[in-house]
Design a protein around this nucleic acid. Sequence first.
DNA 1: CAATGTGAACCAGTTCACAGCA
DNA 2: TGCTGTGAACTGGTTCACATTG
Lengths: 266, 266
Amino acid sequence: MATGRTHRPATRSRGIPEATVARLPLYLRALTALSERSVPTVSSEELATAAGVNSAKLRKDFSYLGSYGTRGVGYDVEYLVYQISRELGLTQDWPVVIVGIGNLGAALANYGGFASRGFRVAALIDADPAMAGKPVAGIPVQHTDELEKIITDNGVSIGVIATPAGAAQQVCDRLVAAGITSILNFAPTVLSVPDGVDVRKVDLSIELQILAFHEQRKAGEEVGAPEEAAGAVPPPPVPHRAPPGAPGADSGRQGPDGDVPAVMPA
Amino acid sequence: MATGRTHRPATRSRGIPEATVARLPLYLRALTALSERSVPTVSSEELATAAGVNSAKLRKDFSYLGSYGTRGVGYDVEYLVYQISRELGLTQDWPVVIVGIGNLGAALANYGGFASRGFRVAALIDADPAMAGKPVAGIPVQHTDELEKIITDNGVSIGVIATPAGAAQQVCDRLVAAGITSILNFAPTVLSVPDGVDVRKVDLSIELQILAFHEQRKAGEEVGAPEEAAGAVPPPPVPHRAPPGAPGADSGRQGPDGDVPAVMPA
DNA sequence: CAATGTGAACCAGTTCACAGCA
DNA sequence: TGCTGTGAACTGGTTCACATTG
């Protein structure tokens, strides 16, 4: 889902499955909510429901962390919050820099979910000189020229890229050169990074495309004959070298659509 | 990674693995870029590199769609773009509504990647009366009261939720009641929806937490002794009912952190 | 001969179902 | 008795390696 090819070799850190790690934040969120409501304990069943997974999976996930539950009772909310936070490394402070302060970058800077966990926005960086000094979410934007210095001075190891696609790789290279080892990429590009650097990406349009795929299926199933005109798509020897630009439905959606969808005009 | 529990039963649509579907947008993006550079054909090797996957996986993925390549040569770029677009349902027009026009909603409205694929922002909806009428990305924001009408009138089937967590479920319910069957959720909450409705979620802070986990590992490995003070975490019988609020490192990151991280003040 | 398409081996992740314990 | 913790079965996904074909 992420990490270009940096998927960390078979280092076998301490064997917590990647899939489990990806769910820990989910559990943590649900637990935090319970904690606020002063709920003392939860059963795997309840917590699973709150987190949107099934209980067997949740119990298996927790079993990788240790035995933090009490048979016949459930889990102590506060204790679990602490254990998961620690496991995720949220008991320490993580300074992050956000590069590219357009709408998205600003949204990220304002995002409460960062500060609430162990994250702290150490700096906002943008290439536009006009942005320099302007405060966003209470933090003054700094110019790209300062990038290296900011990272070094603040001991930042996590960077967020929210620039247009065209600038992403370049920004990425500079971040890495400056010492960043984890990158969250919002630009619609595949970033190449040296081994040892983790990259996770969030692509807004990809998620929509996946939804469209399923949506299309639903529409097809409802009626009887799915698919458009053309004969079934799977194995049937399609009329090779077919009309590449053949219209599928209404609105012509082809033509050069510039794959540099500028997440926002930085 | 998404779809609360709506994971579409064993309908076995036409057997394209979910993992493959999730990668098609990636291939499409890479192909679009090649297409713009007027590259006529690509080998699985080249395309795989451009998309950030390995070639065996790519070929296997394509094999689910049909045999669109030419042995000894590779794939015809234009043809593949068309086939994948069609498969994803992007040859048709998908009107979408974005609910919650804060920084994030605005970023999404401005996002070029939507329009370039088959998506069209049919409307922007926000609960703040003050926003009504104000244009964002050239589209006037409409009040939540109009939600149902907008969806019905435009035949919208995909909705994007970019509201604060607290409003998400309620908005979701209204969207579903109005006929929406696919939802892209940016609010940090688990949405519950009836069967037949697909939900995909994008959680900004979850991605960061996953990065933090790996980052922590790296730091630990560099030195010799990972983990903090406490005895190893896995099997060792931890001192049960331990200090729930025990500090892990520096900055106390506990306390009520309000898990309503308001993606943006809608 | 180069590169696709794919069976088969392999591996990760999920689910089942129940033993074990508070 | 009730719920956790986990071996074992199963499912889905990835990788290998090679036969096939333009």
